[in-house]
Simulated assay, not measured.
Amino acid sequence: MATLFFHSNIRFLRERRKFSQEEISEKLDLSRNKLQALESGKTKNPSAADLVKFSEYFKISMDSLFKVDLTKLSELKIRELEAGNDVYMTGTKIRVLAITVNNDNKENVEYVPVKAKAGYRSGYSDPDFLAMLPKFSMPNLPAGTHRMFPITGDSMLPVPDGSDVIACYVDDWKQLKPGTPCIVILKGEQDFVFKLVTVSDNQLFLKSLNSVYEPFTVPVTEVLEIWQFHCYQTKEFPEPLPDLKVLAKAVRDLQEEFRDMKGKG
Results as ranks from 00 to 15, higher is better:
Ile24Tyr: 07
Lys187His: 04
Asn210Val: 14
Arg11Gly: 09
Val109Ala: 01
Gly265Tyr: 01
Lys67Pro: 00
Val101Gly: 09
Leu224Asn: 15
Thr152Pro: 00
Asn108Gly: 06
Ile185Arg: 01
Leu73Gly: 03
Thr152Lys: 15
Val223Asp: 07
Pro240Gly: 15
Gln21Arg: 14
Ser40Lys: 08
Asn45Leu: 09
Ile60Gln: 03
Lys117Pro: 14
Met148Gln: 15
Ala48Cys: 03
Val184Ser: 01
Ser200Val: 12
Pro219Ala: 15
Asn9Trp: 03
Tyr57Arg: 08
Phe58Lys: 01
Gly153Tyr: 14
Thr180Trp: 00
Glu239Leu: 15
Gly119Arg: 09
Lys72Trp: 02
Thr221Cys: 10
Gly162Phe: 09
Leu4Ala: 07
Lys42Ala: 14
Asp63Cys: 06
Ala250Ile: 04
Asp69Ser: 02
Val246Asn: 10
Met156Ser: 13
Tyr213Phe: 15
Val112Phe: 09
Lys27Asp: 14
Ile99Cys: 13
Thr43Asp: 03
Met89Trp: 01
Asn45Lys: 04
Ser55Ala: 09
Lys235Gly: 06
Tyr169Pro: 09
Met1Val: 09
Ala49Leu: 02
Lys53Ala: 10
Glu225Phe: 07
Lys117Tyr: 08
Lys174Tyr: 04
Lys77Phe: 11
Gly123Arg: 09
Ile24Asn: 04
Asp201Ile: 12
Gly162Asn: 08
Val109Lys: 01
Asn202Trp: 10
Val220Gly: 07
Ile94Asn: 07
Ile185Phe: 01
Asp154Cys: 12
Asp86Ala: 03
Phe12Arg: 02
Lys77Asn: 05
Phe6Ile: 02
Glu257Met: 01
Phe205His: 12
Ala131Met: 13
Lys187Trp: 02
Met132Asp: 14
Asp164Ser: 10
Val223Cys: 11
His146Gln: 14
Glu75Val: 04
Phe229Cys: 08
Val251Gln: 01
Gln228His: 09
Leu70Lys: 06
Val246His: 06
Asp128Phe: 09
Tyr232Leu: 15
Val251Trp: 00
Arg14Leu: 07
Asn45His: 09
Lys174Gln: 04
His7Tyr: 07
Leu130Phe: 07
Asn45Met: 07
Ser74Glu: 05
Gly91Met: 04
Phe54Ile: 02
Val96Tyr: 04
Pro127Gly: 08
Gly144Asp: 08
Thr180Val: 01
Ser137Arg: 02
Tyr213Leu: 14
Leu196Pro: 15
Glu107Phe: 10
Pro139Phe: 00
Val165Trp: 03
Glu222Phe: 02
Asp243Val: 06
Asp63Glu: 10
Thr180Tyr: 00
Met148Asn: 13
Glu39Gln: 06
Lys264Phe: 07
Ser74Trp: 03
Glu26His: 11
Lys77Cys: 06
Leu4Lys: 05
Val114Gln: 12
Leu30Ile: 11
Lys195Arg: 14
Lys249Leu: 05
Lys207Met: 08
Ser122Cys: 08
Asn102Ser: 10
Leu247Tyr: 04
Leu28Gly: 08
Tyr124Phe: 15
Lys262Val: 06
Glu39Pro: 00
Met62Val: 12
Pro219Trp: 14
Asp126Pro: 05
Asp29Pro: 01
Asp253Ala: 01
Val109Leu: 06
Arg17Leu: 11
Asp154Asn: 15
Arg95Trp: 08
Phe129Gln: 10
Glu56Trp: 00
Ile183Thr: 03
Val101Tyr: 05
Leu204Trp: 10
Leu35Ile: 05
